[in-house]
Structure formats: C-alpha cells, structure tokens
Design a protein around this nucleic acid. Structure first.
Length: 580
RNA sequence: GCGGCCGUAGUCUAGCCUGGUCUAGGACGUCGGCCUUCCACGCCGAGGACCCGGGUUCAAAUCCCGGCGGCCGCACCA
C-alpha cells in the first residue's frame, strides 16, 4: 500500500473525478497551468459567487464589479512599476551553477547596505565585484547579475515594437479606468472597483501543483478612499470580531505565533494602518471560514518592507494551514496608498485627482503660473498642452525664481521666461484636489478551490466523502431509483427533471448497486441523495440521505424541492422529514 | 535554472539488472450484460499502457545519448 499524503489524495481525486488537472497534459503538461473539468469549473464558480456575495453584493452602493482587458500596453506596466520592479535579480555561480537572488546575497555578505531595489544589474554586479561577494554554497566566483521579469510579454498586432503584457494583477485595469468610472459613479468616495479574472505571472519554477500557478484567477477589490477621511463606516459591523495577526514587528523578530485582537483594537493600536483593510480582513476571515477552513487554521502575517510589493505601504497575507505545504497565502491585503494613481498621472499626463468641496469656500491670494500658449505652441507643437499642464502643476514660486535666473528644465524640456506669465490673484478655494488612497484585498480563486477541497476531504470506511460546504457543492443532489427497473426509474427521472428545471445541478444514476452509487456521489460532495424505493409506489414518498451522516428521512415527493432548498441553506436533515 | 530521484492503461503495479515465448501480466476503477428491495455485492464480457526523439543490435519496455515532464531540495510568490 502506497502511503499518500492528503494533498496527493486530493489531487488524485481532482483528476479522477474531473475537478482539475495539469494543463496541456497531452503534450506532457506545463507546470503552473491548470485545466478545469466539469466539477472543478462548477466548484470554482461557486467560490467566486460566494466571494461576490461577501465582498460585492453586500456593498453594492459603493463597490462595483467590472471586467477589464487582460492584455495591456507596455506603458501601463511602466507606470505601475511592474516593468521595473516585478523582477528578480538572479546571479549564477560560475563554479557550481547555482542561482541566487543577487540582492539577497549582497545584503547577507555586505554590512550596512540598503537601497538595492532601485539599482541596475550592472550596479549590483559592481557591488559584488567590489565587496568580493561569493557563492555561499561553494565559494565560487559569481557571474553577471541578470534580471528576470515575471511579466508575460506579447505584441499587439503585427508590429513587434508594439509591446504589451498580460496583466499580473487585475488592479491596473481598475486604476486606468478610475477617472471615468469615478465620474460615471457620480463622484463619490469611498468607491470600490472589483474584478474577478485571469492574471499571468511567469514564475521561474512553480512546483506546488495548484498552489503556485502561472495563470490564475484573481478576485480583487481596489477600494478608493479619501486619505483625510479614511474611516470605514462599516467597521462597527465587525469591530468585535477577532483577527489572528502576526504584525510586521513580530515577523521581523522571527515570531510566527498570531496574536488574537479584536478588529477595532487592531486599528486603534495601529497594527493595521487603515480601517478599510481591517474591515476587509474581517470579511476575509469569515469568507475563508465559509469555505471550510476553521479560524484556528487561519492567520494574517504582516510583510516586512523588503518582502512587500513595490506599491505597498503595508501588507497582510492571509494564510491557511495546508497539510503538505504548511501555511500558504490565500489572500493579500495591501495598502497601496496613492502609488498607482500617482504613477498613472505621471505617465499619462492625465489629472487623476478627485475634487472635493470644502464646507465653506476660502479666499486666498495666490501666485499663479499661466502658460503662454502662443509661445509654447511654436516651441513644442503637439507637446504644448502637455507642457502647459506641467507648468500649471509646478510650484509657481520655484518656477519664477528659476526662470528669473534664465531658463529652466521642466518635464524634460527647456523653457524660458517668456513661456510663462506670473500673476498674483485672489482665488476662491472651494475645495481640494487629492489622489485617493487605495486598500486592496486580493484572493486567488484556484488556491481557494484547492483549499476547499483539502478541507472537505474525509475518508469513511475506505471511501472518500467530500464534505464540501453545501452551498459550494458542484452537484446539489442526486436522484437514484433503488433498483434499475421501471417504474422506479421513471419516477426518479421525473423528480430529477423537476429539480433540474428549478435550476439545480442533479445527478441521475441507475447503474449498479445502490451502495456504489452512494459512494460515487459522496466522493464528489453531493450533499443530498433522493432515493426512490418500492414504498414510493405506495405512498408517493421518497428518502433523503445526508452525505455527512448517511442518515435518511422520508418525505413526500411534493415536498422535495423545498426540502432541498432548505437543506442547502443549512437545515438539519431531521427537520425535513420522518427518520427512516 | 542547478543537484538528487523518477517516467509501463484513468490509478496502482509486474517485467528492466541478465535484450528474444511481451502478441507486455495483475489489481482497482470505467463501460456493456446478467443479477440486485439501501451503502464500492457476485458472475460474464469489453476497452485501455511501455513519455518523446535518436543510437547500439538480427532483435529494445529492457542497454546508451539527447529532449520533455514529474517529485524532493535551493530560489521566488496570490
């Protein structure tokens, strides 16, 4: 007997019964990609739907689901920082061939060195040469530092210079659409944009089956809020719920034991920087619990700065304990500040700030730099409007001082005194402009699908029973005639038809023994089986069998749809009929 | 990408060392039939595999080389 760990058993079940399997398997398979079969497709959809329920539908006044393009032009990811930062520095040992993260290696071997993140590979190579950084394994000399970018690259149309990337997160689709959606949604903050969709990351070597993927489904919200009014009005709904946190400071000390704090306390003690993050973390706990993971098998780990993504001021990763892989991240909760909108403002030249009225208008004397368009137009042609914006946005005092000394470089171009007119004006200030800040919860749907399977996988008498939460079950009920003979089969088919017409996924099976059929549906988590037996022919009743207890009750055929609905919503079997 | 181990039906496995009765054997599952009044019953039958490419040889699942893929470790991450 081969001993299988739980993960292997789950993967075996997933493959054998058509939940999911490695993609392109016909040609050997490609690590990091999954193909979902019928049951897996349904299960994943149910998980997505539950997420939608918890995170979007309950907030439909201010969180809106959108769907944006997977392929985005290079500029988007230059602005977002992904082209530059979504990379690893790799350096190879010339002697033993091992590869290392170059920046980590330098930090280990050179004292008091920081700021490696913004450097070029050449600079890092120089540091390695200067400080004689060597291979930590064999002491051999290191080769040139190289970068590896995790973005998948492609080209739009037949023009190879028209570089685009597959998005590594759905977030950028929300940021680039922020401005017009903000107006379409009537200029209100807080505003949440949500998205469920595919994202792509060219991981160097994904080895963890369905856990580490190169293509996966992200479920993400970008919650835009006013940094001067960052409170979350819904926080009191969850303020007494407990979060299991390992704050950054503890992580830095190597402590991975969570502390249990109430949501409100976590905010007051500044363990969590924004109320919105705290609110979403409370929802995330509940959401993952409803997928079958008890709270004690969950925690949030604070990411120290050097481990955070380039855009994040604070990140908590929601971790779930898995049988083989230990604590695995299922969601990330990042405080992205104004990083992304500021970046897109800079690269696009669009003003992505929002305007908010003050309670009373204020009159201010103000120096204003007015661009002289006649001059700018001649000098800069089509770039003139861009220059005008740059002039308006620059600090007028600074600009005037600089121009009085002659010319000045701004926005990459040289301008002279006659490009700008300075006027002192009384201005009515009726409001302020600012870049909204963003709190982002982000979940991986495939991981959660695996997690739900692992947590529901049980064995009973050498059989597999998949105790999925009833509302996640891909197939909601099965209908079996006790033996495969009319009229039992006919009655069973009628019941199956009725339930199907009501919108349920129903398995009908009349093959082999009844025991085998029960076993088959237990294995894929069908919560309820309706069995038609000889008594049905006498009194129009059928039995309902509970997957988890194997107990049965008897109900009239007419009562079956309502009984199923109540059962799926959590009713106990005994409430539905007469015990057999 | 590196190192170690590995690759035979859907799954598990026999065979490989010592090349040839291998037309590749078995078990479970699947499908069809018979049987069957509640938890993988029994009987009969069917379908289904040597990772890919090259080499050695009269002859390759078996020996050699290369590739691909998997698992474990290093590194990275939702």
């Amino acid at each position: 007997m081969v001993v299988m760990d739980k993960c292997e058993k789950v993967l075996e079940l997933a493959r054998r019964r058509g939940f999911f399997t490695i993609a392109s398997e016909l040609y050997g398979g490609v690590a990091g990609f999954l193909d979902f079969g019928p049951l897996g497709t349904l299960l994943k959809k149910r998980i997505e739907e539950k997420w939608r329920q918890v995170f979007i539908k309950q907030h439909q006044d201010f969180i809106f689901e959108i769907e944006t393009s997977v392929v985005m032009p290079s500029k988007v990811f230059e602005a977002s920082g992904h082209v530059e930062h979504f990379t690893d520095f790799i350096v190879e040992c010339s002697k033993c061939g091992r590869k290392f993260r170059a920046d980590h290696l330098i930090e280990e071997q050179v004292e008091d060195i920081t700021g490696l993140e913004g450097m070029t590979p050449a600079q890092l190579t120089n540091i390695i040469r200067e400080h004689h950084v060597v291979c930590p394994e064999c002491g051999g000399e290191l080769e040139e530092v190289q970068t590896f970018n995790l973005l998948f690259k492609t080209a739009v149309g037949p023009y190879t210079e028209n570089i685009a990337y597959l998005r590594p997160e759905a977030a950028q689709g929300m940021f680039v659409n922020f401005k017009h959606l903000y107006y379409a949604l009537r200029e209100r903050l807080p505003l949440g944009l949500a998205q469920i969709g595919k994202v792509f990351r060219n991981e160097i070597s994904p080895r963890q089956g369905p856990i580490r993927l190169r293509e996966f489904t992200i479920m993400e919200i970008e919650l835009f809020f006013d940094p001067e009014n960052p409170s979350c009005s819904l926080l009191d709904r969850v303020e007494n719920e407990v979060l299991r946190l390992v704050p950054e400071e503890l992580v830095a000390k190597g402590v991975f034991e969570p502390v249990e704090v109430k949501v409100r306390e976590a905010v007051e003690e500044k363990l969590i920087l924004t109320e919105w993050q705290a609110y979403f973390m409370a929802l995330a706990t509940k959401f993952v619990e409803e997928l079958g993971v008890p709270q004690k098998a969950q925690m949030f780990i604070g990411k120290p700065k050097e481990e955070r993504a380039h855009y994040s001021a604070q990140t908590y990763d929601q971790m779930v304990k898995l049988d083989r892989w230990g604590w695995v991240e299922v969601s990330g909760h990042a405080y992205r500040t104004d990083y992304d909108l500021a970046g897109h403002m800079k690269f696009s030249g669009e003003d992505l700030r929002v305007f908010k009225k003050l309670p009373e208008k204020i009159v201010e004397r103000k120096l204003i730099a007015k661009p002289r368009m006649q001059v700018l137009g001649k000098l800069f042609k089509e770039k003139a409007p861009l220059m005008a914006n740059t002039i308006r946005e620059s600090d007028p005092k600074w600009l005037r001082e600089a121009l009085e000394k002659g010319s000045c470089k701004i926005g990459g171009f040289e301008i002279s005194k006659d490009c700008v007119e300075f006027v002192e004006e009384e201005v009515e200030v009726t409001g302020r402009r600012f870049i909204p800040h963003v709190a982002e919860p982000s979940f991986g749907a495939e991981r959660l699908t695996y997690v739900a399977l692992e947590y529901s996988y049980t064995e009973r008498e050498d059989r597999v029973v998949l105790k999925l939460p009833r509302d996640l079950a891909p197939i909601q009920a099965a209908v079996f005639p006790l033996v495969s003979k009319p009229p039992l089969t006919e009655v069973a088919l009628q019941i199956a038809d009725v339930l199907r017409s009501l919108g349920y996924y129903i398995d009908y099976d009349d093959s082999g023994s009844i025991g085998r059929r029960y076993a088959r549906v237990d294995e894929v988590g069908v919560p309820l089986v309706i069995t038609i037996d000889y008594q049905t022919l006498e009194d129009d009743t059928v039995t309902l069998r509970d997957r988890d207890t194997w107990k049965q009750v008897r109900v009239p055929i007419k009562a079956v749809p309502e009984a199923l609905e109540r059962f799926l919503k959590g009713a106990r079997l005994e409430e539905l009929g007469v015990p057999v």
